[in-house]
């Protein structure tokens, strides 16, 4: 481990899919105890970047370093071995499994030995409920409930709790607030701050500028696969970021067009 090196560093990472550039020369530092917000419109390359960070795809060019050491992820398992946990948009992906069972998929606690060795479902449920409660989710008290019966925010919390419990040092959250109501989104933002306080590096992927600005320490804006801007908390206003994301020129053109249409409508009625 190199002292002072960020937890996760991307240097000039590019990803090409048969001829098209999905990502071009992305450089990012992900620091412990900080929230990095990845902003971008649909199709800006956020998903591709998540896939590279979580080990689903290997980059075409560029390097990834964990604690200063260059790494190559050949599978999501590799990435999680380095402490990188990814939580997808809808949280738990096993809606028909119980909370306790899904929390420990692939890492089931067991008791007894030999042929009587069994999956300790009671312990699994207790831990899952306890970990969710530590993130402020008190509405779930029975670990036998099916994941699909939880609310969107509860599912996010379950997935985040899982990542934290299994020792994630980097937590990648893919649009965790996109499908949620205002109240639930607020709760998820609070959970992000809790994870940050525990010293976890959070990569918060979103297209909601308000959510990003309220929790982020560091921001990167992606446009058509390139990093269009990179700034720290307080260096940009919300309007500036929104304009940039929407592509300032495109927005200006749209506004002009709308003004013209309104004038036309006004003209027609008189």
């Amino acid at each position: 481990m190199t002292v002072g090196a960020p937890l996760l560093r991307l240097t000039n990472v590019s990803k090409t899919y048969v001829g098209t550039n999905a990502l071009l020369n992305i450089s990012l530092d992900v620091e412990a105890g900080k929230v990095l917000c990845l902003l971008g419109d649909n199709g800006a390359g956020k998903s591709t970047l998540i896939k590279i960070l979580s080990g689903v795809h290997a980059p075409t060019a560029g390097t990834i370093e964990v604690n200063g050491e260059p790494v190559r992820f050949s599978s999501p398992r590799d990435a999680s071995a380095y402490g990188i946990a990814t939580v997808h948009q809808f949280g738990g992906t096993f809606p028909l499994m119980s909370v306790g069972r899904s929390f420990f998929v692939g890492a089931e606690p067991t008791k007894r030995w030999g042929p009587l060795r069994r999956f300790d479902k009671k312990l699994a449920s207790e831990i899952a409920i306890r970990e969710m409660q530590s993130l402020g989710i008190t509405g779930v008290t029975d670990g036998r409930r099916l994941v699909g019966s939880l609310s969107g925010g509860e599912r996010q919390a379950l997935a985040i709790a899982r990542g934290v419990y299994f020792g994630a040092s980097v937590l990648i959250l893919d649009e965790p607030t996109a499908a949620l109501g205002v109240k639930e989104a607020t709760h998820v933002l609070r959970i992000i701050m809790q994870a940050r306080q525990k010293g976890i590096a959070v990569v918060f992927v979103t297209h909601n500028v308000l959510h990003a600005i309220s929790v982020g320490d560091h921001f990167a804006v992606l446009i058509r696969g390139e990093k269009a801007d990179d700034f720290r908390k307080g260096e940009r206003t919300r309007e500036q970021v929104t304009d940039l994301m929407a592509g300032g020129e495109a927005m200006a053109a749209l506004e002009a067009e709308l003004a013209e249409m309104q004038a036309q409508a006004h003209h027609d009625t008189t």
């Binding site: 599978s75 999501p76 398992r77 999680s80 992906t93 096993f94 809606p95 028909l96 499994m97 069972r101 899904s102 420990f104 998929v105 692939g106 890492a107 089931e108 067991t110 060795r117 069994r118 999956f119």
Partner: peptide, 21 residues
């Protein structure tokens, strides 16, 4: 047993199951 949990996970979402090892 934990193998039972693996079977549910594989049937629920193969890719996520594989990602957990």
């Amino acid at each position: 047993t934990r193998y039972g949990n693996w079977i549910f996970a594989v049937g629920g979402d193969k890719e996520s199951a594989r990602a957990t090892g």
